[in-house]
């Protein structure tokens, strides 16, 4: 798996070299239209709040590069989940991400004998490549923008999650996303298919009752109220593969606001489904700064 990640970084560097040479005559950054790079999803890829989209995250258009950093906090019934990370993108073609998810068990940690505020952390390295289509500009075609991505995840509490029944503290998700903006209608639709072994995004490890990849489905719909403001909803199905606790689908309803090209704020109501104890509803807030 490491070699795949290394290969993706190497490919990006190779792509970057001609892109920068070409960019000498034009601004090297900032060619993308407002909000068309999406926001930061919980594992750091460009997308909605829960699901990756086929869009590339920085403000780069062809021949440019871009990047952003984000911080997300989700307060649910029992837990506090934070995610922060950085994204680098080039040529509106490739994005590379590094992020960290922290899952603070708060009082549940104390009840389980782990200690109040026992926190599980996960590091995620991601790469996404746009394969075809342009979600925004190809308004005369049905073909969506299609991208393929990978998320390599490493959980820092492998001992705990394997004791709970997971097979590993490390795992790799593979996904394909198709995103289309129906501009005349102001409607953006996304569908993502993910192959994963992750329990609760990887926070509870990888594999369990079986050690196979599960095919999961994610979808987003967003409506543009203005060029700065979008409202939408998402769903993300997940494996239910740990014997000790049921896992269900996650949902959100969000509002995303672009303060300017360099700053966006997303707030959402999330229903993350059952996480160990009970159904986890709560508030999601995310700030992204980029170029």
């Amino acid at each position: 798996m490491k070699s795949l990640i290394t290969g993706a970084w190497l490919a990006a560097v190779m792509l970057l070299t001609p892109a920068l040479a070409q960019a000498q005559s034009v601004p090297a950054t900032g060619g993308k239209l407002l909000l068309t790079g999406g926001v930061s999803q919980v594992e750091g890829a460009a997308g909605g709040g829960l699901t990756p989209w086929a869009v590339i995250g920085g403000n780069d258009s062809e021949g440019q590069f871009g990047g952003n950093a984000y911080y997300t906090e989700i307060s649910t019934t029992d837990y506090k989940i934070t995610s922060r990370g950085v994204l680098f993108s080039v040529d509106n073609r490739v994005e590379l991400t590094a992020s960290r998810q922290s899952f603070d068990t708060q009082a549940v940690g104390a009840a389980l004998g782990l200690g109040y505020g026992y926190t599980i952390n996960q590091t995620t390295l991601g790469a996404k490549v746009r394969l075809t289509g342009d979600a925004v500009l190809d308004q005369d075609r049905w073909l969506p923008q299609i991208s393929a991505g990978v998320q390599y995840k490493s959980n820092d509490k492998a001992g705990l999650v394997t004791a709970l029944g997971a097979r590993s503290g490390k795992g790799t998700d593979l996904y394909v996303s198709a995103t289309k903006l129906f501009l005349a209608q102001g409607l953006l639709l996304n569908a993502t298919v993910r192959r994963t072994k992750a329990n609760q995004y990887g926070i509870l490890g990888f594999g369990g009752i079986d050690d196979r990849y599960h095919t999961e489905f994610e979808a987003s719909a967003a409506y543009l109220l203005s060029k700065r403001l979008a409202v939408g909803a998402e769903v993300r199905t997940k494996p239910d593969n740990l014997a000790v606790a049921h896992e269900g689908a996650a949902y959100d309803a969000f509002v995303a606001y672009a303060v300017c090209k360099h700053l966006s704020l997303t707030v959402a109501y999330v229903d993350l489904g059952n996480i160990v104890t009970r159904r986890q509803g709560g508030l999601y807030a995310s700030l992204q700064a980029g170029f």
Binding site: L137, Q139, D140, L183, A184, G186, L224, S226, K227
Partner: peptide, 20 residues
């Protein structure tokens, strides 16, 4: 209005293939 703007922009956007 924003929705009317988007209808014009959606008609113009495919020109990117001839212009870019």
């Amino acid at each position: 209005p924003f929705a009317a703007q988007n209808r014009l922009l959606a008609a113009l956007a495919p020109q990117h293939r001839a212009i870019v």
